[in-house]
Amino acid sequence: MAAPLIECRDLTRVYRMGGGEVRALDGVSLTIDEGEYVAIMGASGSGKSTFMNLLGALDRPTSGSLKVAGEAIETMGPDQLAAFRNRTIGFVFQQFNLLARTSAEDNAALPLIYSGLKGAERRERARARLQQVGLGERMDHHPSQLSGGQQQRVAIARALVNNPRILLADEPTGALDSQTTVEVLGIFDRLNAEGITVILVTHEQDVADHARRQIVFRDGRIVEDRR
């Protein structure tokens, strides 16, 4: 069997706040294989966001080891982490984080600017991904001209544009109504079926039910890991 896509051992992240220390993540060990569909759950302050930031290479652990796609996150410097995020991780955020007054196409193409691709190829790949999420007709629209569900689909196209191995979604349906939630989750289901590893952070059980594995955090530790 191939090495797991994500392998963390004794992962700890401590924040210094005022005088004291907060152990946001306290010795987490876990493996996730390529192609899994995982929901990470927990109350706020449970450590799930900290775990998410580490998986996404936005942050480095205080101690312990974290290997993602064969690379040791804890040993990388800021620029190496940036390049790693660019080619390996696709991010989807609760608040979409699209650039205002910028077309859907340019928003979706944003990560490719930092991959050093030429303009024509950036546009071509962004268009292909927008087609894939069903926004082929609205490439020139600005975020203000799109509904919430459509904006989140642009964000998903942006996350996919550089062919990442992992799609990390932080409360991706938190700002959506129930109808569009179903649509967006449908896209995640389909992408996972096509082979991308999808990791959702959510506190809603019916969102988590789309995943085939649910990991529950409490006080910086994993308290439940069911498939």
């Binding site: 620029d79 940036a82 995020r85 080619r87 955020f93 608040q95 984080n97 650039l99 944003l110 930092y114």
Partner: peptide
């Protein structure tokens, strides 16, 4: 600030 955060998240280096 959020735009900067997004750019960093999708792979912008500090120099970029």
């Amino acid at each position: 600030t959020r735009e900067i955060g997004l750019r960093l998240a999708v792979g912008a280096r500090r120099a970029d």
